[in-house]
Design a protein around this nucleic acid. Structure first.
Lengths: 129, 129
DNA sequence: ATGATATATAATAATAATTACTATTATTGT
DNA sequence: ACAATAATAGTAATTATTATTATATATCAT
């Protein structure tokens, strides 16, 4: 039960995320979607972003710069956060699941996964000297 | 300038963190410190937790279960978060800084570090079968 | 010890991100 | 087309955190 019904708002949100390389916050999604759907509500954006990430159709990124960000690519991958400009970039690297084994050695519980993000200075923010 | 002056409230917060293996939230610190300092203010707790972590005397953990947690051990180390009970545990493992190199290969910016936490089921939450 | 100066505090208000509520609207199965 | 149910817009409420301000406390020079 609790069948999911189609809504054009949700469709628009998913389309928007699938067509951007940015990793927008809920508020950015709201402001941009509003250009096509002037009456969309911020609550609708939040509800659908959470629903889509629960369904595994998008990723919710807890980059902890205050608010969550969203990624239209649901495949597990790593992110880089620039300390200077705050941008979130995709990293092209293999999965590093061997760190789960390192962490699990001597740990009495079960390690199921890890959350990792890398930080530093992005190419646009490196001063030219 | 902006010299730091001693305060017994800050001392109590540091003592409290150094004597617990838990990773309390600001609110938990507040509630516990209040047993000895009934008039302490939540704002004071937040200000001192931030000050201490800026000074490198404690760690602020962004485990992203909604709120920040604090660790009296300022040495860099990794944390495990139990999906069932939500507890945050210290992991005894070496630093895995080689993942910065993996991430940096082919990345045009500079990787300076990473934030990682592991999740799964802690020993107390593993069902006995 | 005394007083001047600067920092810290308690109490409260304000902010930011997110979630909850509710009457209305849209979708879906028959 | 109709009934049942989920989704929406608009608004209010919640949660974690930061800002404000008058008062209290610590520190430093005398």
């Amino acid at each position: 039960m609790a069948a999911i019904k189609y809504s054009r708002q949700r469709e628009a949100i998913k389309d928007y995320l699938m067509n951007t390389k940015q990793h927008p916050t809920a508020d950015t999604v709201y402001l941009d979607i509003r250009k096509n759907y002037p009456n969309i509500s911020l609550g609708t954006v939040y509800r659908n972003l959470n629903l889509l990430s629960e369904q595994g159709e998008i990723l919710k990124i807890n980059c902890r710069d205050g608010c969550d960000r969203f990624d239209g690519n649901p495949e597990p991958h790593y992110h880089f956060i620039c300390k200077i400009c705050g941008r979130v970039l995709d990293l092209e690297m293999e999965q590093i699941d061997h760190i789960n084994v390192i962490a699990g050695a001597g740990f009495p519980g079960v390690i199921e996964g890890h959350v990792t993000y890398f930080y530093g200075t992005c190419s646009k923010c490196i001063p030219i000297n």
